[in-house]
C-alpha cells in the first residue's frame, strides 16, 4: 500500500517534469527580449501615465486595460459567499457516527497571562487605525502599491477582530445580519458594473472610462473610473468576508460562548 503510493508520486512527477526539461521551449528567466516581456507589455509600461493617469502599472492593467476580467473576479468573490450560505443552510437529519466518538479536547494552557491587557480599550485604539489605513490604501491604489482588494480585506479583517474581542450585545455599529451583508456584497460588483455602464451612457463602449459624461479631461476621467471600480471591489470583498464569517458563526457554537 505504502509502496504503491510512492510509485504513484514518482510516476506523476516524472510524467510532468520530463517534457519541461526535454523540450526547452520556455523563455529564459529574466531575459528582457523574451516574448512575454516584449510583445504587449512595453505598451502598458510606456502608456500607463499618459493614458490611464495611474503610476501603478498593475492597477492600470487590472482595472483599466483588462477591467472586464476584474469585474468577474469580484463576482467570483460574491459567488463564493452566496455558495457558502446556500451549502451551509441545510443540516443533516441524522448522523452516522459509528466510528469515532467525539472526544472533547482538554488542554491546559496554564494561567491566563493576558489579564493585564484591557482588550476593550485596545480594540478601540487599533480599529480606527486599521480602518484609516484601509481607506488610504483604497484611495492611493493607483498611485502606489495597494488597491481595492487589499482595502476590502483590511476592513473585513477589522470586523473579524471585532467579533473575536467585543461581546455580541455591545456591538452596534459593526453588526451586520447575514441578509444585509450578502446583499451589500452583491452591490459591490454592481458598482463596478455601473462604472462600465457610465461609459455606455456617454456614448462609448463598455468599460470605456474616457466616455464618462463628466466635464473634465480624459486622464482625470480615467482616475474617476478607476476610483469607482476600486470602491466597488472594496465593498464586494469586505462584505463577502463578513458574509462567510456570519454563515459559519450562525452554524457553530463555541464552548466559551457565554453571551
Amino acid at each position: 500500500m505504502q509502496l504503491r503510493r510512492v510509485i504513484t508520486v514518482l510516476i506523476m512527477v516524472t510524467i510532468l517534469v520530463v517534457p519541461f526539461v526535454a523540450f526547452r521551449v520556455l523563455p529564459e528567466i529574466g531575459d528582457p527580449n523574451s516574448a512575454p516581456n516584449s510583445h504587449v507589455t512595453d505598451y502598458y509600461i510606456e502608456h500607463t501615465i499618459s493614458e490611464c493617469n495611474s503610476p501603478n502599472m498593475v492597477t492600470s492593467i487590472i482595472v483599466d486595460y483588462r477591467a472586464f476580467d476584474t469585474m468577474f473576479e469580484t463576482t467570483v468573490m460574491f459567488l463564493s459567499g452566496v455558495a457558502v450560505i446556500l451549502i451551509l443552510s441545510n443540516k443533516p437529519k441524522k448522523r452516522d457516527d459509528m466510528f469515532r466518538k467525539f472526544n472533547p479536547c482538554t488542554t491546559n494552557t496554564g494561567p491566563s497571562i493576558f489579564k493585564t491587557v484591557n482588550k476593550d480599550v485596545m480594540i478601540s485604539i487599533i480599529e480606527p487605525l486599521i480602518l484609516i489605513y484601509a481607506i488610504y490604501v483604497l484611495f492611493h491604489g493607483e498611485v502606489s502599491l495597494g488597491g481595492g482588494f487589499q482595502a476590502g480585506a483590511l476592513i473585513g479583517m477589522t470586523y473579524l477582530l471585532d467579533v473575536m474581542v467585543v461581546k455580541r450585545k455591545d456591538r452596534d455599529i459593526f453588526n451586520y445580519s447575514l441578509e444585509r451583508s450578502v446583499s451589500v456584497a452583491g452591490t459591490g460588483p454592481f458598482i463596478y458594473a455601473v462604472g462600465g455602464i457610465l461609459g455606455l451612457i456617454g456614448g462609448g463602449l463598455f468599460m470605456e472610462f474616457e466616455a464618462i459624461p463628466l466635464p473634465i479631461e480624459a486622464p482625470e476621467l480615467h482616475s474617476i473610473g478607476i476610483l469607482i471600480v476600486e470602491v466597488g471591489v472594496t465593498v464586494g470583498v469586505m462584505c463577502t468576508i463578513i458574509t462567510i464569517l456570519k454563515a459559519i458563526m450562525d452554524r457553530v457554537s463555541f464552548d466559551d460562548d457565554n453571551d
Binding site: M71, T75, F78, V82, E179, V182, S183, G186, T187, P189, F190, A193, G196, I197, F206
Partner: peptide, 15 residues
C-alpha cells in the same frame, strides 16, 4: 452584463 447586474441586485430586491 444585463443578467450579471440582475443577479448582483437580486438579493437586494429580494429583501
Amino acid at each position: 452584463v444585463c443578467p450579471l447586474c440582475a443577479a448582483l441586485l437580486n438579493l437586494v430586491l429580494n429583501r
